[in-house]
Design a protein around this nucleic acid. Structure first.
Length: 365
DNA sequence: CACTCGTGGTA
DNA sequence: TTACCAAGAGT
């Protein structure tokens, strides 16, 4: 036995895991929220909910989930849906690769697994967008298998319960907590237990000022016993987002239609639609927009001037957008990645929030 | 490992 | 206003 395993065993032996299970599961049965995806064990629905919930709040997800399941009630329907329609259903939810990967994975399941979600975690794990957490979550919740599913809640709760001060930002730490959770899972009701840990993290064992006085497992908590609950989990700080100055062109033809283009299918905002823009220095905004339009869209336009300034912050990036109006007499022929549309029609395309800010401003003028 | 990849809520 | 956060995965 390695020293690491010995260290872990000491941590685990300090907690009565049997009693912990009982107290936690009883609490969950009495106190859990009645969320839409908890009304079913359909693995497809559980899967969709887990993808949506990645890095996203429950309150945000609920309306998207309802709409998505209404539009794509089965894996067959989602598999055959046009990608633009799927992206539109995800508009505003962020991390758009999630839904592109989900559709690709669902297509794979329909084609190669008789439209049934694989019950083997390792098989399910191979699908696009299904990582260490999601594989365990869907398999344990939908199929009630004893598999760990380590998310931020799980690491926060167990770091406090077991007084573990490893940096939860590290990949290796996540693997450590998979071992911890696997130990706690033994003899539990997997579907209940895993959801209960996450529910506890969401409602009681919160990042800031945890509700220890209301906690069903406060008597099992090593951090609480030492008054260290506010100091855990340990998490390294993220670096500040970098800034980019963009020159944006709202190109309008004689009929009042504007040019939208589709972003590449890789990288930031993949597959979403946008007003054409180019990274620019703040001194050459007009010229850079003009040459971008000519080079990328074969459009010779007259840039009239700046009509809006918008800042939009991503997780790791800040766009400082200088929006210009430009006019052309006759719109060129559209392509796969270019459309000329009225402002009302523009709303039918999947637009990220940054572009919705611009569109709203145009409509308000 | 470190970085990319969104958005809206909160202190 | 800044900073951090919320059921992570891909590269």
């Amino acid at each position: 036995m390695t020293s690491e395993q010995t260290w872990l065993q000491q941590k685990l032996q300090a907690v009565d895991r049997q009693a912990f299970q009982n107290d936690l599961q009883s609490w969950y049965m009495e106190n859990h929220r009645d969320l839409p995806w908890r009304q079913t064990k359909d693995p497809y629905r559980v899967w969709v909910s887990e993808i949506m919930l990645q890095q996203t709040r429950v309150d945000t997800v609920i309306p998207y989930y309802e709409n998505f399941m209404k539009k794509f009630p089965t894996m067959e329907v989602l598999a055959e849906a046009p990608e633009d329609e799927v992206l539109k259903a995800w508009e505003g939810l962020g991390y758009y690769s999630r839904v592109r990967n989900l559709q690709e994975a669902v297509q794979e399941v329909v084609a190669n697994y008789k439209a049934e979600v694989p019950k083997d975690r390792k098989v399910f794990r191979k699908l696009k967008g299904v990582g260490p957490y999601t594989s365990g979550a869907v398999i344990s919740i939908a199929f009630d298998q004893e598999e760990p599913a380590v998310d931020g809640n799980v690491m926060r709760v167990f770091s406090r319960i077991c007084n573990i001060d490893e940096d939860i930002g590290k990949e290796k730490t996540k693997q450590l907590f998979e071992q911890v959770q696997a130990q706690f899972l033994e003899g539990a009701k997997p579907s209940i237990f895993n959801q209960a840990i996450m529910e506890l993290g969401a409602l009681i064992c919160t990042p800031k000022s945890p509700g220890c006085l209301l906690c069903p497992v406060q008597n099992h908590c090593l951090a609480r016993a030492e008054g260290k609950e506010e100091d855990l989990p340990v998490k390294s700080k993220k670096k500040a987002p970098s800034k980019k100055t963009l020159s944006v062109a709202v190109v309008q033809d004689d009929a009042g239609r504007v040019l939208l283009r589709k972003r590449p299918d890789q990288g930031l905002l993949a597959g979403m639609w946008e007003f054409p823009h180019v990274e620019s220095s703040s001194e050459n905004l007009m010229n850079d927009a003009s040459s971008m339009l000519l080079k990328d869209h074969d459009v010779s336009a007259e840039i009239v001037g700046e009509i809006q300034y918008v800042e939009h912050t991503f997780t790791h990036l800040i766009w400082k957008m200088h929006v210009h109006r430009a006019t052309v007499r006759e719109a060129p022929v559209p392509s796969e990645t270019e459309v000329w549309v009225t402002l009302d029609e523009a709303a039918l395309y999947a637009l990220p929030v940054s572009q919705q800010k611009i569109l709203r401003h145009l409509k308000g003028e």
